[in-house]
């Protein structure tokens, strides 16, 4: 996915001279072509994320589009105040891109897990939050992000993630994508963990539980209508995310349901259970360990459907 992002960014930057890349010594093997093609629009600030973000803001204040780019929490939490006071308060045209959302760098440990980022970025006024699930969404959302005038947080995956979409997709900020339809429940997800949602929905179909599957790639603004339609038309909602349970995508969906008077719908969030991940393993294994596995989605949907059937008898 990071390759797809960098390729698309380079393509856009060839047409738009306002685009700058502002780094903090991360990006080996991916950013070299941008650096070589646009040496005057590229800077490596050294291992200094606060300065990277401040510099990006200053560049953007002069009418440019500045992209910061680093691993997991480095360009978000390390420089959160620069994002809040400098980027968001000034509504500066800065795009904050992370590589390795969630536990993509599983074995590296908690310093490299980005599992509170969505809650924190979502809480900032003026900030748009995007989380593509595969290469097709990455390409389309890169285009949407760069065309948008204002701060955007882009939670990219790492490398080698499976495709969820069979070809190019159309997206918009505030939109969502329905991967399959169903009447028994809706499974929402955001980001690369969506592969577990898809596998679960395929398994459930074999036992006659047909689910709607939706990528909430735009976490903020979130697609309210898609959420309300899911509640009304499918009568049950499960949200899967690779993030702490506090304040993430599941919270965003729950907020819409409660605010819009649809809070009675059977609902389950599948997220990290508010713990620091101390286990060591790859992303797929870590997902299973912390309640984000295929079996967890299946169990959550079955529970909703079983309860509904019981109460309707």
């Amino acid at each position: 996915m990071r390759k797809a992002f960098n390729k698309e960014l380079l393509k856009i930057a060839k047409k738009d001279p306002r685009i700058f890349m502002i780094l903090a010594d991360i990006g080996y093997g991916e950013i070299e072509e941008f650096a070589e093609t646009f040496p005057d629009r590229f800077i490596n600030c050294g291992v200094a994320e606060q300065n990277m973000t401040g510099v990006a803001c200053g560049v953007a204040m002069e009418g440019n589009i500045a992209v910061t780019y680093s691993i997991a929490n480095f360009p978000t939490l390390r420089c959160l105040e620069q994002i809040r006071n400098d980027v968001c308060y000034h509504d500066a045209n800065v795009k904050i891109v992370i590589i390795g959302g969630g536990m993509a760098y599983g074995e590296l440990g908690i310093s490299h897990h980005s599992t509170e980022d969505i809650a924190i970025m979502r809480a900032l006024p003026n900030m748009v939050v995007l989380a593509p699930c595969d290469k097709a969404e990455t390409v389309a959302l890169t285009d949407a992000m760069m065309a948008y005038d204002g701060p955007v947080y882009f939670r990219c995956g790492y490398k080698g993630e499976p495709d969820l979409h069979s070809g190019p997709v159309k997206v918009k900020i505030g939109g969502s994508l329905r991967l399959r339809d169903g009447k028994d429940a809706t499974v929402f997800f955001a980001g690369t963990v969506g592969i577990n949602a898809r596998k679960a929905v395929e398994e459930l179909a074999k036992e006659g539980i047909v689910c709607r599957l939706v990528s909430l790639y735009s976490v903020k603004p979130v697609d309210k209508q898609a959420i309300l339609r899911a509640a009304k038309e499918t009568g049950g909602i499960v949200v899967l995310e690779e993030h702490n349970i506090c304040g993430g995508v599941g919270s965003a969906v729950a907020e819409v349901l409660m605010d819009e008077g649809a809070g009675a719908v059977p609902f389950k969030r599948l997220a990290m259970p508010d713990v620091n991940a101390t286990k060591v393993g790859c992303q797929a294994w870590m997902r299973d360990q912390y309640g984000l596995g295929v079996k967890d989605v299946i169990a959550a949907v079955r529970e909703i459907v079983k309860n509904r059937r019981r109460s309707s008898k």
Partner: peptide, 11 residues
């Protein structure tokens, strides 16, 4: 100062 640096780079 970081923001000033960004403005200096852009100029």
């Amino acid at each position: 100062l970081p923001v000033a640096c960004g403005m200096a780079m852009a100029a």
